[in-house]
């Protein structure tokens, strides 16, 4: 890790206080993101995967300060964001933008495409003139594959894939360095999904963008990510370079996830029928002691109950599992 990281996240916590059951409820703590640390290098794509409730959406919102962090630090090019006041945060938003999961829900139904794409410029580049702004909207629309003639249309007149292009244009129009993509293709049809993934890859190559690509689908992440971080119940299980992760996952949870991905080949799919894990996700309000994954883990032993495994380096990969050395050997 010679080059300096674009984004450094250290021991990030996002905890919510929720009301417990009963007449005189006690406050319970929901640890949506718990002691998460990772780096994002300039120009790379970091994939973030995990099941629903693993905190991946909360994490992406906390990085952008849409949800306040309760502990830890997030540094963008060395600038600490968690303690930054709102006014000082604004100029930094030019370098960090977000693409949302549900393309239609993330577009204001009463605004035209042109107004939607121009909005970040109005907020972040107030000095820019109207003509220049319009030109930039049109240029960005072209880059993401929208027709200039569509500038006065409304979101509901677009299909999901086209609407997601509008969302991508809105994120890119202020020329950010880092784009956080929160499941940008999960809601799209198969044939459209691949178009959008290719578009994201092209845009990255053209503009030297850095992505944090959040998804629940390991097959999609393999296509776009350079490194992959696996989350489970708000904790990091494994961070590894793509090829190493898919060739030989070290964490038993990564192995479980990989074995459950359906394969579009009937012969292979039927041969590879795995015994699925019985136990379901524990409640995030009552995490198991020690390792969060131990209730579903085939390798769990007394040490996993007693001691929470820390994220540590093995052969240049980062794994939080007591049995990782055995798997690496």
């Amino acid at each position: 890790m010679s080059e300096p990281a674009l984004l450094e996240v250290r021991a990030l916590d996002v905890h919510f206080s929720v009301r417990g059951p009963g007449l005189l409820p006690s406050r319970l703590t929901l640890r949506a993101v718990d002691q998460v640390s990772f780096d994002v290098r300039a120009g790379e794509v970091l994939g973030v995967v995990g099941e629903s409730g693993c905190g991946k959406s909360t994490l992406s919102r906390a990085l952008l300060k849409l949800i306040p962090a309760t502990g830890g630090s997030v540094r963008l090019r060395g600038v600490e964001l968690t303690t930054l006041p709102k006014a000082a945060m604004r100029p930094l938003r030019r370098s960090m933008q977000m693409i949302f999961q549900d393309p239609l829900a993330s577009l204001d139904p009463r605004m035209t495409v042109g107004e939607i794409i121009a909005e970040p410029m109005k907020a972040l580049l107030p000095a820019m003139g109207r003509v220049e702004r319009e030109q930039r909207v049109l240029r960005t629309m072209q880059q993401v594959g929208l027709l200039p003639a569509q500038i006065n249309r409304y979101p509901h007149e677009f299909s999901g894939g086209q609407a997601q292009r509008i969302g991508i244009a809105r994120a890119l129009v202020v020329e950010p360095q880092l784009v956080i993509c929160d499941e940008p293709v999960s809601a799209l049809d198969v044939s459209i999904k691949s178009q959008i993934i290719n578009l994201l890859l092209d845009l990255r190559a053209e503009h030297g963008l850095t992505y944090i690509f959040v998804a629940h689908d390991l097959a999609t992440v393999r296509h776009i990510a350079d490194r992959v971080m696996v989350l489970y119940l708000g904790r990091v299980m494994e961070i590894t370079d793509r090829d190493a992760l898919y060739a030989r996952p070290l964490h038993p949870y990564t192995r479980l996830l990989l074995s459950a991905v359906p394969i579009p080949d009937p012969a292979l799919a039927r041969r590879r029928r795995v015994a699925p894990a019985r136990e379901e996700l524990p409640s995030p309000l009552a995490l198991p002691s020690g390792c969060a994954f131990r209730t579903r883990c085939p390798l769990a032993d007394a040490r996993c109950v007693a001691e929470r495994p820390v994220l540590r380096e093995i052969d240049g990969r980062y794994v939080a599992c007591h049995h990782a050395e055995a798997a690496a050997a």
């Binding site: 044939s191 999904k193 097959a219």
Partner: peptide
């Protein structure tokens, strides 16, 4: 359809 699905059983 079959070719646009990202899949784990084939080289990337």
């Amino acid at each position: 359809l079959l070719r646009s699905v990202p899949r784990l059983d084939q080289p990337r």
